[in-house]
Design a binder for these strands. Structure first.
Lengths: 337, 337
DNA sequence: AAAGTTATCCAAAACGTTTTGGATATTAAA
DNA sequence: TTTAATATCCAAAACGTTTTGGATAACTTT
């Protein structure tokens, strides 16, 4: 028993056109008729059919987001991002379409399905790589999209937390506490943000006249075991670092674990910091110093940008760097005297 | 520059009907023409317009999921569920529509938008309450839906981890380790699963002839501070419990914190267990004994059920209880001698 | 009074698909 | 040779909107 414009037209005695225009608020319909039609629509519970609308308007009023599927527990980062994106989308009257796929070919197919099937008007991307094929595809298809995170090129709209600033801040923090032997567990170099982060770390050292010690720079893979392996190498050095900055919290937690195993008390004998502020970090023992990126807020802003693009308007700034927040916890220890 | 059936018809010299039927695999089109048309479609990159399809077929090929928005960090549970649901949906060729809203009126509106706007063919619900208005609405609208978790009534399709079994198992586990003074921090009673869980706990005690001590049963609110408050009450008792079972991991972690503050070593002086197996639990100190529910798997099965309903087929079993997994970690301590 | 405005309405087209109900030509059966 | 069956095709309708391009009547202005 579904109610369409047709139904309303018959019951009200007006034409489909008038009903449609009355409901849409056009000025060429008598206020009295409009009131009558609106009342009738309410009474019968009229809800416009989306498919018909989309067919006619040639847009889906939907934005898409593909989340990469991993075997282990899903990434809280994406949940936050998704929450932000979904929330903001709905304030614009847009729906959010989700697709979960293991990275690789299947993921690319998902993008194609969403984009060329015109299921979505725009896409939100996250976790970009260098030479990301998804970006290439979307640019080529000339389909609106926004990205969280940078790649090696900058000719598309993105929002990123300032990786340089973040690691500059962390390093400053430790230098401020009197450390000079500060190690860095980096990110896989094919990740868009890897370089900026390392530069932030190095720049801070250089600012303070501390030479960059290549032994103190090791690469990690963003997992906890990766952090363990990296920290083991660092602690085996002749002169071990007095502070470790990891490219994310998971690796930092791995590093903390190694420290404990080797009899070092984190926050006293050695300082450790991470990046992300995952929920685990505040509950760790000791709680982990880290940098927080306002993921949900980023989600909001991504949608703002995307909708602007979808509407064909110009973006006032198509690249935004977000200021991160330093969160100092017990893993920093006390300033050395 | 979009390619429609019209385009293919003109270029191939056949009618729109024939092109459509050729592509759809109908037998009333010559194999040779079919081949020609298919080749042409490939060449021009034809992708059927979803909106038109949906309008014609009167279904959206989409399922919906509303996630409740909270102020703090998003719930990993929903991320897992969403991953499972999204994955399975795509194997059926269905899309997944997400809506994020703070619980309450706005949430209900989201359901209405999705359902009566026929944006989705079916809904997946989670975290149900007693007398859940969403269930009432969906039943009333006669719209296909499946639920993760039970409410007080059973006249709708759901999948739930067996709460009775879970807490029975946990209690058995502690009794097995020699405990008799086992406390229970419960869930808010308006949650659908609260009763079953407490029954599981009580039944296990009764099975072993241990009287149920009402002082050992306190209500929690599923948050960590709630666990703290509950544990403080328990530890203030004349005869404090030797083991605490909490209704979820978060409360268990809160309880562990209280124990530590009062000089008790969890895993030696007192045993603690939770439910959920959130990522935090395995990293806690000591790691927390808990019960895991296979959330992603539940997501798969929910979609199976939902699609069956959407197709109008009968469900062979419209209520499923899933067997939980007991995960014993150091917070259980050693068997008392 | 004629011409121009304004307010209010609507028929028909368009969006791109699928389905219905034949039409036509070809082949097989009577 | 006539009739029945089969293979292959297609025009038109339908799905529910929005938009286009007027039509009509009622006022206003010259």
């Amino acid at each position: 028993m579904k109610v369409t414009l047709q139904t309303l037209a018959e019951k009200s005695g007006f034409s489909i056109t008038t009903v449609s225009r009355a409901l849409a608020g056009y000025s060429d319909v008598n206020e009295q008729t409009r009131a009558r039609i609106k009342a009738l629509a309410d009474e019968l519970g009229y809800v416009p059919n989306q498919a018909a609308r989309r067919l006619q308007s040639q847009q889906s009023n939907t934005i898409g987001l593909v989340i990469p599927l991993t075997d282990d527990f899903s990434d809280p980062f994406f949940m936050e991002l998704l929450t932000g994106v979904g929330r903001q989308a709905s304030t614009y009257g847009y729906d959010l379409l989700i697709s979960a796929h293991p990275p690789g070919d299947e993921e690319m197919e998902a993008y194609q399905r969403l984009v060329s099937g015109s299921r979505v008007d725009g896409m939100v991307l996250a976790r970009t790589h260098i030479n990301d094929p998804r970006i290439a595809y979307l640019k080529d298809a000339n389909h609106p999209f926004v990205v969280n995170g940078r790649a090696n090129v900058d000719d598309f709209p993105f929002i990123d937390v300032d990786g340089f600033r973040s690691f500059h801040m962390l390093t400053e923090h430790f230098i401020d506490y009197g450390h000079r032997d500060i190690a860095y567990i980096g990110c896989p170099p094919d990740l868009g943000y890897a370089a900026a982060r390392q530069h932030g770390y190095e720049a801070s050292l250089t600012d303070h006249g501390i030479p960059i010690n290549q032994d103190y720079i090791v690469e990690g893979d963003l997992t906890k075991p990766g952090g363990v392996a990296a920290a083991q190498r660092l602690l085996a050095l002749n002169q071990r670092p007095s502070a470790i900055i990891a490219g994310n919290d998971l690796m930092a937690l791995g590093a903390m674990q190694v420290c404990r195993q080797q009899g070092l008390t984190v926050g006293e004998d050695i300082a450790v910091a991470g990046f992300d502020d995952i929920p685990l970090s505040s509950h760790a023992d000791p709680p982990l110093t880290t940098v927080r990126q306002p993921i949900r807020e980023i989600g909001y802003q991504l949608v703002d940008m995307l909708i602007t693009l979808i509407r064909g308007d110009m973006l006032d700034e198509s690249q935004r760097l977000i200021e991160p927040t330093l969160i100092i916890r017990a893993s920093s220890g006390k300033p050395l005297n």
